[in-house]
Design a protein around this nucleic acid. Sequence first.
DNA 1: CCATCTTTGTGCACGCGTTCACAAAGACAT
DNA 2: ATGTCTTTGTGAACGCGTGCACAAAGATGG
Lengths: 264, 264
Amino acid sequence: MATGRTHRPATRSRGIPEATVARLPLYLRALTALSERSVPTVSSEELAAAAGVNSAKLRKDFSYLGSYGTRGVGYDVEYLVYQISRELGLTQDWPVVIVGIGNLGAALAGYGGFASRGFRVAALIDADPAMTGKPVAGIPVQHSDDLEKIIAEDGVSIGVIATPAGVAQAVCDRLVAAGVTSILNFAPTVLSVPDGVDVRKVDLSIELQILAFHEQRKAGEEPGDEQPAPPQAAAPVAPPVATRTTAEGGRKGPDGDVPAVMPA
Amino acid sequence: MATGRTHRPATRSRGIPEATVARLPLYLRALTALSERSVPTVSSEELAAAAGVNSAKLRKDFSYLGSYGTRGVGYDVEYLVYQISRELGLTQDWPVVIVGIGNLGAALAGYGGFASRGFRVAALIDADPAMTGKPVAGIPVQHSDDLEKIIAEDGVSIGVIATPAGVAQAVCDRLVAAGVTSILNFAPTVLSVPDGVDVRKVDLSIELQILAFHEQRKAGEEPGDEQPAPPQAAAPVAPPVATRTTAEGGRKGPDGDVPAVMPA
DNA sequence: CCATCTTTGTGCACGCGTTCACAAAGACAT
DNA sequence: ATGTCTTTGTGAACGCGTGCACAAAGATGG
């Protein structure tokens, strides 16, 4: 879950469970694909398979939206697409600003997934004066000095942060002060925001580390249930004492950040 | 959570809870920052604040790793960095291949977060012959014909998919067949893999849609607890009944996938 | 050596999320 | 109409994750 809710009691009084909300986009994608193939109806079983979830879960998810299915038949594809779109707020236009037009920011600007679902890139913002005016993905980059003005004029409420970690919090603060209430953060930092502002984070490094954990476990299992990890109690593995834990022959974390070893 | 486990019973016999594993990288980052500032020890309270979590949760998380703290004092920063790194498997070298060197793939190739934590970009792979040999982020792109060879030679077990959705499953299949057992998927598709292979997905579009949902709710609340969404009970929107949901209107999306609104 | 103070480690309770399993609802054929 | 068959919608049980609150551990000072 590369996500990170920040507060909010839970799911709201009579609302839809958070876990369900997170799956709705998945269902929507599968339904849209069916819609394009002109499939009129689908059963929970079929749709669940397409979305990669359990059919019981899918039915329960839909039950939170209302009774949109027909027993013995299934769900009307078009109708469901509409209902989910409406529930997610995709029937309205959401202007989005992307701050930090480096490699990643540029990739995001050109990402088709934005435009295709009600999201509109209202502006690209970067602090580098050399970037100002330069078109990226067909949109001219604007200087961060104008951040507040841009947000106010376009009524932007969603901001995407693709800046270096060091300035992410500062950018976040300015976005929030300017009126943004939802933030998608790609910078590897924990952002703190006032109540009422939602933050979701996408962190490539974290995802990789989670994969590495499972990968390591897989490798360590085959041999025969070997002791997964010497509880440090003993003396083995690089007793935190002065060792150099390979994988770090003296490399240097670009943004300051090394595997690091340890003196007991 | 932009994540997506695919199977696996839960957390493994005597292992660490999945939720905890997902937070370890977060702690590691905070600890690394402290380490660079030469802070010797830190309390659960301080570290929790830095990582943006609850201190009780943090202590419980660490308890799964062992008793690495000292009551009345806190945790030894360097020692904890080492323990977490080891637990996550970051003390070893993980060669990674990135498939699909478009905007996103290039951004990933240049992302510092990779190299900084034991991950090494072993190869960049793209199907476009025009890309072959061209250096991206200092690494020459290789043609996808050589995918199997590359993976075998470098002993790659982690693959990153940054291709268009249409070919993601095919690429995935090839990666798995070649020996990759962990995949980080950026393509907006549900990948199906055999047991034993882990898949995590990062989907920008989904994250935005979740934000839009909350944003819409925030907007709809102020007015005075207004009915958040007409429950459709009424007569409006296309009652699923007879409505033949025709053989499709004739809408068309870029990569197959449209906002999809609906004939009221 | 004892008292006090800080901070960890964890037992426990609670709530969310998942899954099973089945009754109810409706389509469809006869 | 009636019966059969399919598929939904959901009650109930279970398990994981979270957070409280406190006892135990150890540091520190006298």
